[in-house]
Structure formats: C-alpha cells, structure tokens
Nucleic acid binder design. Structure first.
Lengths: 188, 188
DNA sequence: TCAGTGAGTCAACAAGCGTTGAGCGAATGG
DNA sequence: CCATTCGCTCAACGCTTGTTGACTCACTGA
C-alpha cells in the first residue's frame, strides 16, 4: 500500500510537512489561541514534543504556517488592478490559501497577526492609491475599497454569511466588479 | 471627596457596574479568549471571586457585556436605509458601543460570538433585501453590501488601518454614501 | 557487525486559567 | 446593643496549556 522504504530524510520532511499542514488547517479553523500544540500533534499523528522539536515554539509554528504567498505584481491599469484586488482577497480562483485564512482568522485577537494583516493591507492600499486617477482623497478611497473587499471575504470565507455561503465566486465577482471599477475611476 | 455614605444596595450596584464596564472594555480590546476574569477583576479593583459571584461564569459575563443595543426600526426608503446601515455599523454617531465592539472583536475566534454576529447581520441583510427595488439577485447584493460595510468598520475600529485611523467618520460617510446608494438602487 | 545518529515517544514541569467554599468584617435592622 | 445579613476577600482546587529533558529503538554508514 504505502511507499515501501523511504530514506530517513524523506520521512522526516514528510512528517514535518504533515505537521505544518495540520497546523495550517487548525489555525485557519480556530485561530491562534484556540489551536493547541496537542491538537496539531494529534491531527498529524505525532507526539506534541515533536512539534516543538521541529518548530521551536507555538509562535514559530504559526509564523511558518501563515508565511505569505508571494506578492502579486503591481497592476498598472484599472482593469488589472480590479482583478488583482479580487484575487488577493480570495474572491477569484477558488478561495484563499489556508495560511492566509489562518492569518485573517486570528487578526482581530492576535496582535502579531493584526500587524501582519495591517502591513499587507497597507501595501495593497498604496498600490490602489497609486493606480487611482486623480480623485479627491485617493488614499482614503483606496483604504475604504480594500476594507470593503476584506469585509466581503470575511463574510464569505470566515463567517459564512448565509447568502454568501452558497454563492460561487463568479457570481460575487460579477456583482462587485462594476462597483469596484466605479470606485477606482475618478467619477463618484 | 467621594460620596459620603451610600446604601449597601447602591454600593453593590456600583461595583457590579464597574465590573461590567471593565469586562466590556477588555473584551472589546482583547477578545473573549485573551480576556481573563482575573484581569477584569483587577481592572475593577475587586477580587476575581466576586466577578464569578455576580455573573456566574465567564461566558455569562461575556453575554451580559455584549447584549445588543435595541434593534433599529426598519427603514422604508433608500435614504433612510443608507443611514440605518451606516449607523448600525458605527460609521456615524461617533463609533460603536463597546459591547458591539467586543462582539465583533471575538466573532472570528469564538463560535458563540460568531453566531450572534451572523444572526445580527442576517437580519440587516433581510432588511436591506426588502428595501431594495427589484434588482437581480437582491439577497446576494444586500449581503455583499452589508459585508463591505462590515469590512470598513473592521478596518476602521478594530484593525486601525492607517488611512482610516485618522479619518473622521464624516469624511468616510461622505465617500461611502453615494456608493451605497448606487448599490441599493436598481441600476448597476 | 557495531558504534552512532537521529526520528520519535514518554513523563513531567511550571504557569495560568476558570471556578469554588469557607471565612472576615462592616453595615443593617430590630 | 446584639444577631444577622451580605459585600467582599483568601486560599486553594483541578485542569489545560506550552515547553523540556531523558529515553527508546530502528536505521545508517563504515
């Protein structure tokens, strides 16, 4: 059934990956505080002490579990910007990676996660500001736009708001896109 | 200096109120899990056991601390609806009550808080849906609208996103209101 | 074959948590 | 003035948590 004989290094990397995957899943599901090392270990079929041995401390495990997907290239025109926003916040391409969900889940109750999200969103806001034609208050408008999309992501992926829960991403994007475009354009 | 002689009942109600206020502040600041009974008691200048004696259990204290402000009357026309939405999500009238902030702070990591927020938002969504002219997908549009405003509230009150942090509510409302109105109207 | 490495387990620690029951001491009311 | 109530504290409980050090034992490489 299983792979017959793997080298020690292979097995080690496999267990480490299994632990990391369990950690990501649980962090995304329950957040930092309510996820215990014991639960991660048990989900990975391993002793709690091994988790510490491989990752050092719970905080380090969390850091490893949520370390960001590579930054998207800065969009130049409004259409590309819209797509970038929708993708970054997981409204396209079948949801967000579990690590990002874990970070979002913990951002309101864990200061470290809050800092990380704040930084990421600030970068997004700067990109949107730069790509925005000379409207009044471009920074504020960009921040409001990004926050609004964040809220939709939360309602959809983290809170499971009934009408959003069942809706496919395409229908959501279909409704949002024109609104986003009208906000990034200079007209109000 | 202080009130000279208060009755026993008065003093008791005063301490109970002090405990509840401390609980609200800490729950709003740190969320359910990271707020300890000991911290609440210490902030209220009181022994932890007294908190239990007055409120029964930590969960009950939380319930008391976040019990909702009275529901707003359902708006009939689009303008009133917009105002109601902006007010409910704390974007008008100088921020949200601390109990609501506490509920929001905990909604991603505490299942009970999540349920309560989901219910409150669902009611809001139903109100918006009902008040919306016959557009396509009114429920989905309403849910997206409410989620977007929720996101703005989070970015503003809970995350403290730099460009939103300094902005007064009036400027934010000034930018949002036309967008909300254009979304609640039937045109897309 | 055999010392040695290293993956993984076991048992325990200290700290912090929610929660409890007994007790103190001042205000109360007759 | 005395017995009682009651707001409040004290000290401790049982439990869970992150974390650690010693141990086991299968596999490695010479």
């Amino acid at each position: 059934m299983s792979m017959p004989h793997r080298s020690r290094a292979e097995r080690r990397r496999a267990t480490e990956a299994r632990i990391l995957a369990s950690a990501r899943r649980l962090f995304a599901e329950k957040g930092y505080e309510r996820t215990t090392i014991r639960a991660v270990a048990s989900a990975a079929g391993v002793d709690p002490a091994l988790v510490m041995q491989y990752f050092g401390a719970k905080r380090d495990l969390f850091t490893r579990a949520v370390q960001a997907v590579p930054e998207l290239p800065t969009a130049s025109d409004a259409d590309a910007l819209t797509d970038q926003l929708l993708t970054t916040l997981g409204l396209k391409l079948g949801g967000l990676p579990e690590g990002v969900l874990a970070m979002m889940r913990s951002m309101l109750t864990d200061p470290a996660a809050a800092d990380q999200v704040r930084d990421a969103l600030t970068r997004q806001i700067e990109a949107v500001t730069a790509a925005m034609p000379a409207a009044e208050d471009p920074e504020l408008r960009a921040a409001l736009l990004v926050s609004a999309l964040l809220g939709i992501t939360i309602g959809h992926q983290l809170l499971g708001l009934p009408p959003l829960r069942g809706a496919e991403a395409d229908r959501i994007v279909g409704i949002i896109r024109p609104a986003v475009k009208s906000l990034t354009a200079s007209a109000d």
